[in-house]
Simulated assay, not measured.
Amino acid sequence: MTDTLTLYTNPMSRGRIARWMLEEVGQPYETKILGYDGAMKAPAYLAINPMGKVPALVHGQTVVTEVAAICAYLADAFPAAGLAPAPNAASRGPYYRWLFFAAGPLEAAVTDKALGVTVPYDKKMMAGYGDFATVMDVLEDALSVDGWLAGDRFSAADLYVGAHVMWGLQFGSIEKRPAFEAFAARLAERPAHRRATEIDDGAMPDQAR
């Protein structure tokens, strides 16, 4: 596909994950930075993402929002980057599993904890993640094995899960465990992550640096 890739983002948002994914893909893309001054609620952008938040990816006539969806879309749109197992590969199951584990149970559990929300014991079945401790233990087990989450090759699932882990460790919303820290350290060494971080850090407002 040769249509232009455009990322709508803000360096103080989940758009950092989408940029990292774009850097892994290695295709040229444009960036449009929207501020939290009302630009995300302007009619022109609401036509792209009615939620009025970033990131959003526009690829030709295709619009993709939600970071996990952006990662999955880019991995499939540019298969030469090798960021997703083949559709008929056995590793496709674990790839989907962990990509959406992070988008669902992990993010919900971490957000609730940050907001001071504790799910009552008798209501755990109502919460998609059950409880925070279970989510952390399951994640730790997954990151304690050799290789990557979907086999022996880095994929978009590692990127998306890893971004949550790195963010959580940085801001204290995920407790420090050896498996988490080791996984984050591996990802921090990736050239695409370094490039994306440098770009977004350079776009931060002066008062936030």
Rank of each mutant, 00 (worst) to 15 (best):
L57R: 07
A56F: 05
I48R: 07
Y73Q: 03
V58H: 09
L46W: 03
P55V: 01
P50H: 05
P50S: 13
I48D: 11
H59N: 08
V64A: 02
I48T: 12
G60V: 11
T65V: 15
V54S: 05
H59P: 10
A75P: 09
G52I: 11
P50L: 10
V67M: 10
A68E: 04
P55G: 10
A42N: 12
M51S: 12
V58D: 06
C71P: 00
T65Y: 00
V54N: 10
T65I: 15
N49Y: 13
P43I: 08
M51N: 15
D76H: 10
V67A: 12
Y73H: 04
G60W: 08
Y73W: 07
M51T: 14
V58S: 07
H59R: 08
L57N: 04
M51G: 13
E66N: 03
E66I: 05
G52W: 12
V63Q: 10
A42I: 10
V64Q: 00
A42W: 07
Y73C: 01
I70H: 01
Q61M: 05
M51K: 15
A77I: 09
A47W: 11
V63G: 04
A68Y: 02
M51Y: 02
A56T: 12
Q61I: 05
P55E: 04
Y73K: 01
T62G: 03
A68L: 02
C71H: 00
A44S: 15
K53N: 07
Y45V: 08
